[in-house]
Design a protein around this nucleic acid. Sequence first.
DNA 1: CTAGGTTGTTCTCAGATTGAGTTGTTCTCA
DNA 2: TGAGAACAACTCAATCTGAGAACAACCTAG
Lengths: 250, 250
Amino acid sequence: MNEQDFLAAYDPRDYPAVAVTVDVVALTIREGALHLLLIRRAAPPYAGHWALPGGFVRPDEDLAAGARRELAEETGLGGERLRRVHLEQLATYGGPDRDPRMRVVSIAHLAFAPDLPDPVADTDADDAIWLPVTALTSRQLAFDHGRIIDDGLERARSKLEYTPLATRFLAPEFTITELRAVYETVWGHPLHAGNFHRKVLSVPGFVESTGDSTERGGARGGPRAKLYRAGDARLLHPALLRPAREETVR
Amino acid sequence: MNEQDFLAAYDPRDYPAVAVTVDVVALTIREGALHLLLIRRAAPPYAGHWALPGGFVRPDEDLAAGARRELAEETGLGGERLRRVHLEQLATYGGPDRDPRMRVVSIAHLAFAPDLPDPVADTDADDAIWLPVTALTSRQLAFDHGRIIDDGLERARSKLEYTPLATRFLAPEFTITELRAVYETVWGHPLHAGNFHRKVLSVPGFVESTGDSTERGGARGGPRAKLYRAGDARLLHPALLRPAREETVR
DNA sequence: CTAGGTTGTTCTCAGATTGAGTTGTTCTCA
DNA sequence: TGAGAACAACTCAATCTGAGAACAACCTAG
């Protein structure tokens, strides 16, 4: 049976229900470390376990709108702050047994946010925190959220290579050093400052100068840094490739 | 309301039903041109329009399994031939109004296939064909399938850059020239033969030599070409970047 | 106020990669 | 058998990259 036959003969009450939800892997950088938004589940299954913020898609809303709404509810964020958060679809997880109660198909999203206030636990959660991703291993995660997070982190790492989205982790105006710090924390290793500088400025549309400089030099000295804002490129040409992480020995 | 509250209080009969389907953007190369698998819808809505093969996800099956099943049904393919087809998730389309009858969330997949036999129209379709993608503009496509196809084509182009999936369009053993033809067809412009050759052989794990050569030279002359098979790399390091398609003038 | 250390930015330079063209050889077709 | 085609290898200049150095602006400590 295919879609149209199915729909022609379809009566919702005849068919096993499928729940459609959105989940959000929201990333931000706090104190030089990559953090992830998690909530602690109040109710079974997986009560007490940590989980991604998410929820049911409303009948009249787009998938992306649902994800943005869930993110807003969980962070208590709105308006301009929320609008600056980058949100994209990550992947859809829909194995028959991912939720013990019924079939749940979840469209996972990936969000890049500038440093945001601490989240406020919603009615449905015991707690909500920005957790450093390095602290993830010891946590018990609900459902298949561990895998979703892994996929999200890998996507984030690779998105920094060929898109200018690293700027979304920063304030509207930033220095090249701050931008480099984003790459270093997401990729997890240091980059050569001089080469990074040269490369960023040579990619058309990545950043544009504001003409201004920071008010003060760095905390421990150094000159005032020039300020930039995100350019209008959607894609980085050429890309900023990260060094091959594992030597494919062959 | 969030996921767990929702589910705790959930009775399928209370809630507007959502249909979950899979659609497949299946690509292959025939006679040097990129082709796409389409079916012609037999029933309204969009009766007579062309659409992607797809259908309802069955209660006990994974999303990827559903997509593979739909592809098998539409191509009449099975066994080893089907197993060699690369299938990956593309994106999920779930706007509230994409189907006039009810809310349909569709998880689109992208497939790369070696040259396959002509499809057989299933019971639910008037017709099924491999259509050259260059002929797409003039076709009336059902639902938002035009957009899904655009996304699939762009994804295919970019996947060739950093994965060895171009080999999935070919037989298990192939020549470098055949591989180059895949790139030229998908990217839509010619590549420098010598440089392509050098590059492919220099990327670790992209291809490995079989030691054999073709039985005959090219149709219009030339020496016998060496044969290769796909290597074990999952990612191309360094990538085979396509020339910037539009000069980002700034 | 000054000395010493830190940092943003630019520069240098060798090595690797790329784009474009050439060469030599093997093969098919007429 | 000759002409043209195509595979594979090579050359070479232009560009890009990685690594380090230079240098001035700035902070803090004393």
